[in-house]
Design a protein around this nucleic acid. Structure first.
Length: 519
RNA sequence: GGGGCCGUAGUUCAGUUGGUUAGAACUCACCGCUCAUAACGGUGCUGUCGCAGGUUCGAGUCCUGCCGGCCCUACCA
C-alpha cells in the first residue's frame, strides 16, 4: 500500500490493581475500544493502550496482608483487569503494567530530564496522610473521632501524621504557561465544562508538587537517591510514553505515536491529566498529548454506586445477563458522552428491544428473508434506480463523514443516533416500496428495491462494527461480505449481485423479562 | 468564600450566534401494512420552557435577583 497511514494513539488510564474491575473501568475502556476500532476500519494506524497501575503503599500493604511479596500480588490481581478484554471484546494492542522494566526505565529517564532542567528540588513534607486515599489532608478536612483518631471527612479514611523529606516538582512555575497552553489548545480538555473547571483551578494558583516518598518502598526508585521512590502520579502518567517507546525518542514507535491523540479518563482523575501531565511534559521539553476527555459516572437505578451500598455493577455479570453487544451499545447510546448516566434494567431492555431487535435486527431480518425467499437465496441484480432509491442510498452514503465528525469529538451517542436515523429511513422505505406487493406486479422492480436495501444493510453493518463487532460480523456473514471487504474503504464498492443470502437467523433476540412485575 | 453546570411534554433529553404555530425518542391511543423477531409505517395526545423582574420590535435562547439540584476549588485549625 502506498502512502502512510495516519497514526492514532489512544489510551485508557491504568487501573489501580487494588480495585476489583467494575462498570466504570469497563466503560472507559469500551469507549476507547470503539474509537480504536473505528479508526482502524477507517484506515488509520492505531495503537490502543490499557494497563494497570501497580505501585503504591496500598498495594504494598495489601500484599503484606495477603502474605505475599508485592510483585506476586500484583501479578495475580492485575489478571482481573486483563480478563476484561476477552469478555468485553476489547481490542487493545498493548497492556502495560507499571512494574515492568520498560516502565521503570521510562520513569527514571523522565526524572533525570526534569532534574537536569532544574524542575525538581529536594524539600520536606509534613501533614496528615491517608494511606487509603494516597492523599494529604489539611486539618480542616479531618474529623476527630471519639478515640482520638482522625479520619478524612470526605472519604472516611484514617490519616496519620507524616513527616518526610520529599522531592518537589516546580509546578508553581508553570501556572502561566499552562494557562497559555489551554488558550492555545482549546480542544485539549473536553468536555467544555471540565475545561472551565481546570482553568479555574489553575488560575487559583498552583503549589509545588511532592513527587517522591520515603515511607514505603513499593515504587520506582528515584535515580541516585535510593531512599526515595517516585510519587504515584509521576509514575502512573509516564506509562503513556513508556508504551510508545520512551525514553528511546528515536524509536519508530515513539516518533509514530507520541504525542498521544487521546487520553480517556474518568472525571475524577482529570486534574492529573490536564494539569500535572502537561506540566511534567513541557518541563521535560516533550510533546503534550492532543486531548484529554473526562467522561462521567454511572448510577445504578438512580442510586449512586458505592461499595458500602453494595450496588457495584460487575461488567462480567452484565454481559452474562444482557449479552455483550447490547451492553456495549447501551453504554454508549444511552448517555451523551461526558455526562453522568443512569443504568437501569428498564432502560437497557428498552434499548435492546426497541433499537436493536425492532429497528436494526428486524430491518436486516425482513430484507434478507425476502431476498432468500424471492431471489433464489442470492443478492438480486438491480435495474435503474428511482429517486427514492437514490435518496436512501445517499443517506447511508453520507453516514461515514457524519460518523467521522462525531467520533472525532467522542460523541458516541450522536454517532449512533445518526446511524439509527438511516435505519429508520430504511424501514420507512421498505413500507413505502412494499416489495411484497411488487413480487406479483413488477418482479424486476422488487429486485431493485431489495438490492437497494441489501446494500443499505451492508453499509449500516460495516459502520456499526466498532460498537457491536460480533453482531455486525454476523450480519455481514449473512450478506456474504468477505472478511477483507469490511473496512470503510469497502463502502465505495457496492454489493455484488449473486452473493449468497440464505434464510437468515435473528441477530438480536428479543429480551424477555424474567419477572416483569417486580419493581 | 471564589468558580462552573443544570432545572424544557408522563419519562429521558435536543434546542446553533435571541426571530414565524417550542422539537425528538420512549410510553399511550387510533389507523394502515403483512416481508419481518406480535416486528414495520402513519396520525394523534400532554408543556405557565424553575420563580420574579429587566434589556429588546421580539427571549427557552441575553442581564439581575431568588428557589432547587450538582460539580470543581479555597478557607475557617
Amino acid at each position: 500500500m502506498p502512502g502512510q497511514k495516519t497514526p492514532y494513539y489512544i489510551t485508557t488510564p491504568i487501573y489501580y490493581v487494588n480495585d476489583v474491575p467494575h462498570i466504570g473501568h469497563a466503560y472507559t475502556t469500551l469507549a476507547c475500544d470503539v474509537l480504536a476500532r473505528f479508526m482502524r476500519l477507517d484506515g488509520r494506524d492505531v495503537k490502543f493502550l490499557t494497563g494497570t497501575d501497580e505501585h503504591g503503599q496500598k498495594v504494598e500493604k495489601s500484599a503484606q496482608a495477603a502474605g505475599v511479596d508485592p510483585q506476586s500480588f500484583t501479578d495475580r490481581v492485575s489478571q482481573n483487569f486483563r480478563n476484561l478484554s476477552p469478555v468485553l471484546n476489547f481490542s487493545n494492542d498493548d497492556f502495560i503494567r507499571t512494574t515492568e522494566e520498560r516502565h521503570k526505565l521510562a520513569c527514571q529517564a523522565l526524572w533525570k530530564k526534569l532534574l537536569d532542567n532544574g524542575e525538581i528540588y529536594l524539600g520536606g513534607y509534613s501533614g496528615w496522610y491517608a494511606v487509603r486515599d494516597e492523599a494529604f489532608y489539611t486539618e480542616s478536612e479531618l474529623t476527630k473521632q471519639p478515640d482520638g483518631k482522625r479520619i478524612a471527612t470526605a472519604s472516611g479514611a484514617e490519616v496519620e501524621w507524616v513527616e518526610e523529606p520529599s522531592y518537589f516538582f516546580r509546578l508553581s512555575a508553570w501556572q502561566d504557561r499552562l494557562l497559555a497552553f489551554y488558550e492555545a489548545n482549546p480542544d485539549f480538555i473536553a468536555p467544555e465544562t471540565r475545561r472551565n473547571e481546570v482553568i479555574s483551578f489553575v488560575k487559583g494558583g498552583l503549589k509545588d508538587l511532592s513527587i517522591s516518598r520515603t515511607t514505603f518502598s513499593w515504587g520506582v526508585p528515584v535515580p541516585d537517591d535510593s531512599d526515595h521512590i517516585m510519587y504515584v502520579w509521576l509514575d502512573a502518567l509516564t506509562n503513556y510514553m513508556t508504551a510508545a517507546g520512551y525514553p528511546d525518542v528515536e524509536s519508530s514507535d515513539y516518533s509514530t505515536y507520541w504525542p498521544a491523540d487521546l487520553h480517556m479518563v474518568g472525571k475524577d482523575i482529570l486534574r492529573f491529566h490536564a494539569v500535572y501531565w502537561p506540566a511534567f511534559l513541557m518541563a521535560a521539553e516533550l510533546q503534550t498529548p492532543k486531548r484529554v476527555f473526562a467522561h462521567g459516572w454511572w448510577t445504578n437505578e438512580g442510586q449512586k454506586i458505592s461499595k458500602s451500598l453494595g450496588n457495584v455493577i460487575d461488567p462480567l455479570q452484565l454481559v452474562e445477563t444482557y449479552g455483550l453487544d447490547p451492553v456495549r451499545y447501551f453504554l454508549l447510546r444511552e448517555v451523551p458522552f461526558g455526562n453522568d448516566g443512569d443504568f437501569s434494567r428498564r432502560a437497557i431492555v428498552g434499548r435492546m428491544n426497541g433499537d436493536l431487535t425492532n429497528d436494526l435486527g428486524n430491518l436486516s431480518q425482513r430484507v434478507l428473508s425476502m431476498i432468500a425467499k424471492n431471489c433464489e437465496n442470492a443478492v438480486p441484480a438491480p435495474g435503474a434506480f428511482t429517486a427514492e432509491d437514490e435518496a436512501l442510498l445517499a443517506l447511508s452514503g453520507g453516514l461515514p463523514d457524519r460518523l467521522r465528525e462525531e467520533y472525532a469529538v467522542q460523541a458516541f451517542n450522536k454517532a449512533l443516533e445518526a446511524t439509527w436515523d438511516v435505519i429508520g429511513a430504511a424501514n420507512r422505505y421498505v413500507d413505502d416500496q412494499a416489495p411484497w406487493g411488487l413480487k406479483k406486479t413488477d418482479p424486476e422492480r422488487m429486485k431493485t428495491v431489495l438490492y437497494v436495501l441489501a446494500e443499505t444493510v451492508r453499509r449500516l453493518a460495516i459502520l456499526t462494527q466498532p460498537v457491536m463487532p460480533d453482531s455486525m460480523a454476523k450480519m455481514l456473514d449473512q450478506l456474504s461480505v468477505a472478511a477483507d471487504a469490511r473496512g470503510f474503504e469497502s463502502l465505495a464498492t457496492p454489493l455484488e449481485a449473486g452473493a449468497p443470502v440464505p434464510k437468515p437467523e435473528g441477530i438480536f433476540p428479543r429480551y424477555v423479562e424474567e419477572n416483569p412485575e417486580s419493581a
